[in-house]
Lab assay of single mutants.
Amino acid sequence: MGTYKLILNGKTLKGETTTEAVDAATAEKVFKQYANDNGVDGEWTYDDATKTFTVTE
């Protein structure tokens, strides 16, 4: 398990959240659902060194 971070750079929603997941693929699924639930759809990037996903609208 590891802690993964999501940085939201949406047009109307900005912020950060974290999740505990077994791997990056699992964290990505959780974060994409979170972003979708909050109406954020954009370009995704992932930094393996910091376990950080970023979505920018």
Rank of each mutant, 00 (worst) to 15 (best):
E16G: 07
V22I: 13
N38S: 08
A35G: 03
E16A: 09
T12P: 04
T56A: 06
N36W: 15
K5G: 03
M1Y: 13
T12W: 15
V55D: 01
N9Q: 10
D41K: 13
Q33M: 11
V22P: 15
Y34G: 01
K51M: 13
T54G: 03
A21S: 06
K11P: 10
T3H: 09
E28V: 06
K14Q: 12
T52I: 06
K29Y: 10
N38M: 15
K14R: 13
I7L: 09
T26G: 10
V55G: 01
A24S: 09
Q33V: 09
T50W: 04
A25P: 09
E57F: 09
T18M: 10
Y4E: 00
L6Q: 00
L6I: 03
L13G: 08
K51P: 00
T52E: 04
D48G: 10
L8V: 13
G10F: 13
V55L: 10
E57V: 06
D41W: 14
D37Q: 13
L13N: 09
G39A: 06
D41N: 11
K11Y: 11
D23I: 02
L8T: 05
V30L: 13
V40M: 08
E16H: 11
N38R: 15
K5I: 12
T52Q: 04
T45V: 09
A27T: 01
T17K: 11
K29L: 14
T56M: 07
V55M: 05
I7N: 04
M1T: 11
Y34C: 04
L6Y: 02
T12R: 08
T3I: 15
T18C: 08
Y46N: 01
T45D: 09
D41A: 13
T50F: 05
A25N: 09
D47W: 04
T45N: 07
E20G: 05
Y4P: 00
A35N: 02
Y4L: 01
Y4C: 01
V55R: 01
D48Y: 09
G15Y: 14
G2V: 15
G42E: 01
F31E: 00
E57P: 07
T56P: 01
W44V: 02
F53D: 00
T19Q: 05
K5R: 15
E28R: 10
E43F: 12
D48C: 07
I7W: 04
G42N: 02
K29N: 07
K51D: 03
F31Q: 00
L6M: 05
G10L: 15
A49K: 12
L6G: 01
D48N: 10
T54W: 08
N38W: 14
K32L: 08
I7R: 05
K11M: 13
K5P: 01
Y46V: 01
E28A: 12
A35D: 00
K29E: 09
F53Q: 00
K51H: 12
W44S: 01
D48R: 07
K32N: 04
E28H: 13
V30I: 15
T56C: 06
D37H: 08
V55H: 02
F53M: 02
D37K: 10
V30D: 05
D37Y: 07
A21M: 03
I7P: 00
G39C: 07
T45A: 12
A27G: 02
Y4K: 00
V22N: 11
T56S: 09
E16I: 13
D37E: 12
E28T: 04
G2C: 13
T50Y: 06
G15Q: 12
F31L: 05
T19D: 03
T54L: 06
W44A: 01
Y46Q: 01
T17F: 15
T26W: 09
K29C: 08
Q33P: 02
Y4I: 01
G2H: 15
V30H: 10
D23V: 03
A35S: 05
T17G: 04
I7K: 06
T17L: 15
D41G: 09
N36G: 06
K29W: 10
E28I: 09
A24P: 09
T56Q: 07
L8H: 03
T50P: 02
T3R: 10
F53C: 01
G2S: 15
D47H: 07
L13Q: 07
Y46H: 02
D23N: 09
T3V: 13
K14M: 10
G39K: 07
G2R: 15
Y34L: 06
W44Y: 02
T3Y: 10
Q33S: 07
T12H: 15
K29V: 11
V40A: 05
T3M: 12
E20A: 09
D41E: 14
Y34E: 02
V40G: 02
T26Y: 08
F31G: 00
V22M: 13
T18R: 08
Y46K: 01
G15S: 13
K11L: 12
E43N: 11
D41C: 11
D47Q: 05
G42T: 02
Y34W: 15
G15N: 10
E57S: 08
K14F: 08
E57A: 07
Y4M: 01
G2F: 15
T50S: 10
D47M: 05
L13H: 13
N9F: 12
N36D: 10
K29S: 10
A27M: 01
K11W: 12
T19N: 04
V22E: 13
V30T: 12
T45Y: 11
V55P: 00
K32I: 07
L13S: 07
V40Y: 07
T26H: 13
M1D: 06
E20S: 12
G42S: 02
T19C: 10
T45M: 12
Y34P: 00
V55E: 01
D37R: 10
E20I: 14
F53W: 08
N9S: 08
N36I: 15
E57C: 05
N36T: 14
T17W: 15
E20R: 08
D47E: 07
A24W: 12
K32P: 00
T19M: 15
D23A: 03
L8E: 01
V55Q: 01
D23H: 04
T26K: 06
E28L: 15
L8P: 01
E43T: 14
K11I: 14
L13D: 05
F53V: 01
D48I: 11
D47Y: 05
K14V: 10
T45C: 08
A21G: 04
W44F: 04
T19E: 04
A25R: 10
A25M: 13
T54D: 03
G15C: 12
D23Y: 03
A27H: 00
E16P: 03
T52S: 04
L13M: 13
T45L: 09
T45F: 11
A21F: 04
V22R: 10
L6W: 02
V22D: 08
F53K: 00
V40E: 03
D47K: 04
D41V: 14
E20F: 14
L8W: 12
G42V: 02
T54Q: 06
A35P: 01
A24V: 12
K29M: 12
A24M: 12
T50R: 06
N38F: 14
F53P: 00
G10Y: 07
T45E: 07
T50L: 08
G39E: 06
T12Y: 13
K51I: 02
V30G: 04
A21H: 03
T26D: 10
N38H: 14
A35F: 03
K32C: 05
A24K: 15
V40N: 03
N36R: 15
K11D: 07
I7M: 06
I7G: 02
G39Q: 08
G42K: 02
L8D: 01
A27Y: 00
D48E: 14
D37V: 10
L8R: 02
T56I: 08
V40H: 04
T12F: 15
Y34F: 11
G42I: 02
F31V: 02
N9I: 14
A35C: 09
A27R: 00
K32H: 09
K11Q: 11
K32R: 14
T19L: 09
T12M: 12
M1S: 09
T12E: 09
T3F: 10
T50D: 04
T17N: 05
T12V: 12
A27N: 00
G10W: 06
N36E: 13
E16L: 11
T26L: 05
A25T: 09
T56R: 06
T50M: 08
V30P: 01
T52K: 03
K11G: 07
A35M: 05
